[in-house]
Write a protein that binds this DNA or RNA. Structure first.
Length: 420
RNA sequence: GGGGGAAUGUCCCGAGCGGCAAAGGGGGCGGACUGUAAAUCCGCUGGCUUAGCCUUCGCAGGUUCGAGUCCUGCUUCCCCCA
């Protein structure tokens, strides 16, 4: 982003200081709107999974700050656009989701917003919308006549995302063009119906958003604005929140609070400051203090990051419980009974169960084959003792004084086995 | 419409004289070292009831003791000519 701009509004001040801004179509324009309390911004969320993951968290936080600084946030469910599918950045087209799946996903995704936004009828109350509201009733011919005539294919061809595909001889399907048009139309429709004047999103959405601004101008809407956040990667270049174990989901039924806390606790040193700004509400001077910590001391900052970020999502109580579980597990080496737990029938345990199967059941390894391999590499432990023999059995003798068996993969992943 | 190429381990990229569970990367997981970090080094990276068995190289057939590899047809993608 341009550097010498000095925002007047609280909104842009916060976003600038905390590093949320990658590109903006008109900083002065957005600033003026924000200052006059006249800023209504939306962000679209695809309904492709039952839960959003940390990749969407930057966007959610932007909506949060907008509301805190006097603007009106509008999370938009892509109930309509998900039926088409956004092919940007994909090398093969996404498989089509059934309407039932999309509905179910929508319900799952919605939950999370109430934790970050206040909904209601007031001026700065958040508004939850779904583009199925206007997209599903769209008539193709009408759409082409009223909206389609405003799209300049010439202009769309010159967009980076499109140009890149063409230059690389990569497939660019017709559906992708349509997705762009629908998203642009969303912006205009939101402007008409709800007075939305700003669309935010990840940096990969820039082209789509600007197309919307252009369409708004052609269709006689008041000036619309675009603001994107940087694409989040870790300091070592990996995509945020993607691990082999799975995405870092926001919904508790997809990822336990403890694992969510652990995700933040394991932040790389170089990311701590950035993440504190983006994913906590801590004041800036506190963040400056924390990110200045050196060496092992930075672990204190990581714990604060983890607890703060987890508290935003799951509440302070659960966040602190997760922090305490981690403290017992890692700092005391004790068995914290609050670790993720699976049940086993007491009779079954009495009879003895094979160690391979039980690690699979605990979800620590994907197959007995992987369990075997991990045992060879010294990666599986029972009550903190590495398993030497893959044919070993567990029985009541393995119960700790807490009445559980602690199963571990590596040094960080633990599951308790509890007889019932 | 004609001609030429491509599809490989269900994360990706990619080698593969008829003997192949299939080279090599990346990514991931584990071990060592650390600070639950990074970097580095080492191991692993189809499934199972594991001295063995089963399933994998776009799809369907065929040749062969034996096919990722050869033949035929099909599908999809790319390039060149029209």
């Amino acid at each position: 982003m341009s550097t010498d701009f000095k925002p007047q509004s609280d909104f842009l001040n916060v976003l600038t200081q905390r590093g949320y801004i990658h590109q903006c179509s008109d900083l002065e324009g957005v600033d003026a709107k924000a200052k006059s309390g006249d800023l209504t911004a939306y962000i679209g969320f695809d309904c492709t999974a039952r839960s959003l993951h940390v990749g969407s968290l930057v966007q959610i936080m932007m909506l949060h700050w907008l509301q805190q600084t006097g603007g009106k946030p509008v999370p938009l469910m892509g109930g309509g656009t998900t039926r088409v599918g956004d092919p940007s950045g994909k090398d093969e087209s996404r498989k089509m989701l059934s309407l039932d799946d999309i509905e179910a996903n929508k319900l799952g995704i919605k939950q999370v917003f109430s934790k970050f936004l206040t909904f209601g009828e007031g001026k700065t109350d958040a508004l939850m919308l779904d583009n199925a509201e206007w997209l599903t009733t769209l008539n193709y011919i009408d759409f082409l006549r009223d909206v389609g005539k405003h799209f300049s294919v010439n202009r769309m061809m010159s967009m980076d995302s499109v140009k890149m595909r063409l230059e690389r001889d990569q497939e660019l399907s017709f559906i992708e063009f349509n997705y762009m048009c629908l998203q642009a139309y969303d912006f205009v429709e939101l402007s008409r119906r709800y007075g939305v004047n700003l669309q935010m999103g990840g940096s990969d959405q820039w082209g789509n958003i600007v197309t919307g601004i252009d369409l708004g101008r052609r269709m006689g809407r008041p000036q619309l604005y675009a603001l994107t956040s940087p694409l989040l990667t870790t300091a070592s270049g990996a995509k945020m929140g993607k691990t082999a174990a799975g995405a870092i989901w926001l919904n508790e039924d997809m990822l336990s609070v403890y694992d969510y806390w652990q995700f933040w606790r394991n932040t790389e040193d170089a990311d701590v400051g950035r993440f504190l700004r983006l994913f906590t509400l801590l004041p800036m001077d506190e963040i400056h203090r924390l990110e200045a910590l050196q060496g092992a001391e930075i672990n204190e900052a990581k714990k604060i990051l983890a607890t703060q970020a987890t508290a935003l999502m799951h509440g302070t109580e659960k966040a602190e419980a997760a922090a305490e579980t981690a403290r017992k597990t890692f700092e005391e080496g004790a068995v914290a009974t609050s670790l993720p737990t699976i049940d086993i029938a007491a009779d079954e345990l009495r009879a003895g169960v094979g160690v391979l199967g039980i690690f699979v059941k605990a979800g620590l390894v994907a197959s007995t084959g992987e369990a075997r391999r991990q045992i060879k590499g010294g990666g599986l432990r029972v009550n903190d003792v590495a398993i030497a023999d893959e044919r070993a059995n567990l029985n009541e003798a393995n119960l700790t004084s807490e009445g559980v068996v602690k199963l571990s993969l590596g040094k960080k992943k633990h599951v308790l086995l509890k007889p019932v």
